[in-house]
Structures are given as structure tokens and as C-alpha cells.
Design a protein around this nucleic acid. Structure first.
Lengths: 219, 219, 219, 219
DNA sequence: CATGAATGAGATTTCATTCAT
DNA sequence: TATGAATGAAATCTCATTCAT
């Protein structure tokens, strides 16, 4: 009945894989309260359910791939910062700006990153999870190297460690302030402002403390 | 097989509710890769499936209650610290010790806390989620008050804010170092030590920075 | 906590039983698409769920009792007709009038009678079902006797037999024209009028045929 | 165990649907006191529970389909009668014979027809119920037409109307004589014979009255 | 490769009925 | 007697995943 388009060569396969990722992203963006179902992703991508499983072994693998892409995008942004480095202080400011812009441009990054450990990594083949972790580590090591080229006075690993802590802070802060949509009324009703982190403000504050504290000790 | 008691008054009901929580905890402890099924929880508790649903509306509500208990336990520990306060510096050390011991004693706290935002809160009645949030806020405010009684030189909200950031750091750091069991071999094989946070060590470092930095500015 | 009113003597028990029947009737009247739940009946009657089971062994027993009451009411009406008999012909007209009025006054009779065989009798203790059947038979026999006192020319059993057929016709016709509420639009849209029985009209026609045919053969 | 075939095209799907109906029929035949459970039907058909729900939205839909089939079988029999019509009088006799044979060959027809209005139609999507009703009406209209071709002296709708009344009579009479199996002893013990309809005998009598009365008025 | 039918585990929900108190 | 907690069967529904075609 239907003419089955077949992805024969690798580039076609990659394209099909990407179309699945795009469909998944669109759907997840529309409702981040839960990962969209495979059938909805397949339909959005104009494919059959089974076809999705030719490209990803589990549903979570799709979203881990999506997170992986986002992380790589972010890392590239950070690497760009180190292309034209100025002073460590300015770098911190630039980093923060870059980060905030990235989060605004990639609204799925935080939801995905939150699910990574409790959901995604639990349902993805160990090999794939490993590759994801290694990719992150590679990039972090690369950034650390570039950083030391620009600022040789800092020891190996310092920048990488700061990146990890930065990531941890973002993750934790975001999850704490990510109240379910339906709880928003409550949020305004009570004087929570003192106790609920204001994500961007707190992030700015914390990161500056974190980075400047660490970097200044070597200046 | 089971005792088949009837929970008539409120204390008996609370006991039965607790027995469900205990059963769920035992099962989850045995395998943190996914929340145990409701039927397995019921069987473990010696109850019928229907009975579990008399006490909790959804499976996630069970685990949010469990997390709530853990948070309350932690808060009580922290409050105890403020009963006999010494100097701010010593307090930070004590806090860290307390925290580490708590995490060791309550191995489900971190997995549960990680799931709170992406999983638990998404599938629990908004009212219950609200109560959970309010409970946390109450405790944080209480601790903030006690803190200022002990150290009046610090402004209102400072301690609460530090607690939030502490929580964020714990959450983020834990999730980053929480590699799936099956990935552990990989973790040793590569020189990850430089880039994977060593949870306790990094936590110690970060918290000291965080708290001492903040507290010293008022001494 | 609550003061339990206890029905000690038989009249109190009968009253409580009746209050359950009343509650059930009210609820079923509000929605005849399904028998109301026991919990709703209990609440309506101001009783606990378990108490209902002290008076009726199953839910269906409640509704069989209700149907039994209705049948008895109907029989009494018919008996009244025979108190002041005129001619067989007039009797048929009176019977029809009485029947129509009864159905209007007792809107649950038809739904209940429809459920009797496929639902109620399947879920009521055989003893109770037997009593119900015997009650009906007794009344029919009584009516048959009274009829022959008034019109001796008719053989024993003729009137009883006619009553049974009357009942069968009512049952069958009613079920065929009892379209679900939500199907009513469809009913008007198509030219069903020729093929869907118009309950009262068809009933009148059929009954007159049935009775007059039978009775005239003996005049 | 099972063949695990895939129903790809429509005829295969119809076959699978039929296999579910067959399984349901077998089980219901073994115990007409209640509709068999979906899981038992699935197992009998060698299918998974979920598969049954691919073909029928509710359990009652299965049995309404079964009833629909039975009605269609019956209608076809009746249509056959009109292929080689003789006199109206003979037709009535043939109709009765056909009807009795049909009821003997399809022992589930009456139980199902009894449940149609109070149970089945209440729990089947309104659209499906409508289709069922329309099917019946179509067939009745068709028979009415054929009838008038054979016997032009009768007005339009007369035959259809008689069919409806016939159906009503069957329905009502059957329900009245359908005593629960366990009540049979009681049935013999008492002199019920005068008051309990003898289904086939009474049906014969009534139908002859009904049809001959109506048809003779036009001869 | 692509498809979508089939699977089956599991979450809820409902609710009649039982039974300890 | 009266209560309502507990039971457990069954209906639905959802959906990730498998696998015959």
C-alpha cells in the first residue's frame, strides 16, 4: 500500500535517525512532563513504530542522544570562548553569559539532564551510556587543555573540575526551582521567594563564587 | 500468612501506611534501577493491591512520601546541630559530617531526590506535591531562625539560602557520579578520576567553599 | 464516634430494610443505565456499607426485592379491577389503562423486569429467587380464580396464561424500544418510526388482540 | 502453543476477530450465568489480553457482535423462507419451524438478546450500538420488501411490524421461562405448569395468533 | 529495511463482598 | 447489630518492545 522509503546508505540512515530525533524533540518540547511515547514520535516522523527501533534500541536512547547533542553544542560554545581568551575574570563573565544563552536556546537541556541519571541511563544499553560518558569526558579534557594553554598558571584538571561543579550546580538548582506548572499558583501565593532559588540569579551568584574563588587563588 | 489487622484509628492507619513505605523501601533498596511495581510492594507488605491504593493514590506518591520522610530526618539532624552551636566554622564541619553520615544511613535519599522533579512530582496529585514543598520550606525557615538565634550577626534568609544551594550541589554532584552499576568497570578502566567527581571529596570541598565563603563575609 | 442506631425488633428491622430499598430506588431512578453501587446506596440510606449486607445478601437481592414490590403493587391493581367487573371487553380496556398508569407511576418496573432474568436472578440466592417466583405464581393464580368467579364461562388457567403473555409482550416490547439515551438523536434522524415499536401504541394494539382474541372465543 | 499469526489484511483481521468471538462463545456456552472475563476469552483464543482489546473496545462489544451475528443468521433464514413463498398460512408455519430450529441451533441467542438492552448496549460505544440497530432495521426492511413482493396485498410495514412483535414475544416469553438451572427442582415440585409459560408451546400459540390474525385481515 | 500486529507487564480504577472490631 | 477497612477479581488502558511478513 504505502511506498516504503528505504535508507540505504549511511547518510540516508543518519538523516532518518535525525528525523526521529527532531520529531522527539518537537513532542517533548510541547510537554516536558513526560517523555513522549514511541508511537507519537514515529507518527511525527512519518515512520512506523518498528522503524524507530531500527535506529534506537530503546526510547530512552533517543533522549540520551538528544541530551548528548545538547551537551556537545554547549561544549562547542565553551570552546569558542577559549579561542579568544582575555583574563580569567572576564572568562567567568563570558562563561555565564554563554551558559544562560545556551539554556534559553535549548530549553530541553535541563529537563533531559535531570532525567539522565534516574531515567535515561537506566534504560539504555551500557555500551551507549559509556560512549556518552566518554564523549563528555573527552570534551572536558579538551577544554581543560585549551584553558591551560591560555592560562598556563593553572594546574591540570582545575578547569575540568570547575566544569563538573558548574554542571552539578546547574542540575541541582534547576531541579529545585522546576516546580510543576500546576503548582505555580501556590508558588506565588506563599512567600517562597526567600526559599526557592531564583534560577538565573542564584546560578550567576554561585558560579561567580565558584569560579572566581578557584581562579583567584592562582593569580 | 499475614496478620490481617484492621487499621481502625489514625495511629493504626499511620502504622499501616508506614508498613507500605517499609515494604517499598526494602524493594527499592534491592534494586534502585527502577521503582518497584505496586503489586510487588503490596505482596511485600502482606497486603492486597487494593489496600495499597487505599493509602496512596499513585505509586509515585509512595516514593514521594518516602523522600519526604528522609528530608525530615535530615532536617531534624540539622536542627540538632543548632541546639549546641559553637562557631560558624565548626558548624560547617559538623554539617558536613552530619550530611555524609545521613547519606550513608539513607542510601535511598539521593536516588529519590534525583527522581523528585522529573518523575515523582509529575505523577502525584498537585495538592500532595504542594504539601511536600511547603514542608520543606517550613523546615528551612525554621532552621534559618534557629541559626540566627545562634549567630545573630547573619541576615535573615542567609542560612536558608545556603541550605538550598547545598541541596542543589548534593543533587547535582550525586547525579553526575552515579554511574550505573554495570558501568563501573569502564569507570576504572579509563583515567576518569580526574574528571568524574569523587562525590564525598568534592562535596566536602564545595560545601566548605560555599558555607565558609558566605559566613566569613559576616564575621 | 458515631452513635449506631440499632434495629432491635422486627419492625425496626423492616424499616431499615425499607430505607435501603428507598435509597436504592432513588439512585436507580436517577440513572437507570446501571445498578447503583452498594456504597452509594449505603450512603444514601445513611448506613455503612456492611450494614446493607445485614439486610440483603447481594446487591442484586435489593433490586429483586424492589421488583417484587412493584409486581405486587401491579397485581393489587389488577385484583382491584376484578372487584367490580363488568364485561370482558370493558375489563380489557380497564386492564390496559391500569397497566399504562402503573408503568407511568413506576418507571423502574420495566428496567428492573428487564434485568430480572439476565442479571438479578443470576446473583441472588436460589431460595430467594424461588420465593419471588412463587409469589408471582400465587398472585397469578389468585387473579385467575377471581376472574373465573366473575366470568365462570372461562376455563381455569386462561386468565393466568393471558397475564403471562401480557407480561412477555410488555417485557419484549419495552426492551426493543428502550434505546440508550445517547442514541436518541440517531433514532430521530432515520425513518425508524416504521420499525421501532411505539411502546404504548403497540402495547395497546397487541394486548387488545391478545385478550380479545382469547376472551371472545368463549363468549 | 498458539500459532501467533499476524493478521495483516482485512480478511485475516476478520478471521482473528472471529476467533475471539468463537472463544467467547465457547466459554459463554459453558456457563451462561455471567459473561466470561476478558482474560479467559483471550486465553481461550490463544491471544494476549491486549490483543483482544485491539479488536473490541469493551467486553460487552464482543457479545453484542455475537448477538449481531446471531440476528443476521436468523434474518437470512427468514429471507430464505420468502424465496419460495407459498400461502401466508404456510409461511407462518414455516416461520415458526425455522424459528424453533434457529433457537435450538443457537442456544446463546436468547441469553444474549436478553442482555442486549440492560447490559450490552449500556457498555458499548454508542456508534457501535447504532450500527447494530441500523443493521437490524435494514434487514427488517428488506424482509418487509420481499414479503410484499410475494404478497402484494399486504401494506408496507406490516411484515416488519409483525417481526418486531415476534421478537418482543420471543424475548419476553423466554425471559419468563428461563429459570436458573438450580431452580429447576422447584419448578417440578410445584404445579407451575399452569402458570409458567412452556416456551415453545406458548410461542407457537402466540405467534400463530399474532401472524394469522394480522394476515387474515387482508385476505 | 520497513511495517504494524501482537505481546504482556503494570498502573489504575471500580466495586462487590468479607470480616475483625 | 453496625462499621468500614481489607480483599481481590476484573476491566480498562497505556505502552515499550518484539517479530512475522
Amino acid at each position: 500500500m504505502s511506498q516504503r522509503l528505504r535508507a540505504i546508505d549511511d547518510s540516508e540512515k543518519a538523516a532518518r535517525r535525525q528525523s526521529i530525533l527532531d520529531a522527539a524533540k518537537t513532542l517533548y518540547l510541547a510537554d516536558t512532563s513526560a517523555l513522549p511515547s514511541v508511537i507519537s514520535i514515529a507518527r511525527k516522523a512519518g515512520l512506523a513504530k518498528g522503524t524507530v527501533y531500527l535506529y534506537f534500541k530503546t526510547k530512552e536512547e533517543i533522549f540520551l542522544a538528544m541530551l548528548s547533542e545538547d551537551y556537545q553544542t554547549l561544549m562547542i560554545e565553551v570552546i569558542k570562548l577559549l579561542d579568544a581568551p582575555s583574563s580569567p575574570d572576564e572568562l567567568v563573565d563570558d562563561l555565564l553569559t554563554t551558559l544562560i544563552r545556551f539554556l534559553d536556546d535549548n530549553p530541553l537541556f535541563m529537563p533531559l539532564a535531570s532525567m539522565a541519571s534516574p531515567v535515561l541511563e537506566q534504560n539504555v544499553e551500557i555500551k551507549i551510556v559509556g560512549e556518552f560518558k566518554l564523549m563528555l569526558i573527552d570534551k572536558i579534557n579538551l577544554i581543560d587543555e585549551l584553558f591551560r594553554k591560555a592560562f598556563p598558571q593553572f594546574p591540570e584538571g582545575q578547569c575540568g573540575s570547575l566544569l563538573l561543579h558548574t554542571n552539578a550546580l546547574i542540575l541541582g538548582l534547576w531541579q529545585m526551582q522546576n516546580w510543576p506548572e500546576k503548582l505555580k499558583p501556590l508558588q506565588q501565593q506563599y512567600p517562597f521567594n526567600t526559599v526557592i532559588p531564583d534560577f538565573k540569579k542564584d546560578l550567576a551568584l554561585s558560579l561567580k563564587n565558584l569560579w572566581k574563588g578557584a581562579l583567584n587563588s592562582h593569580t
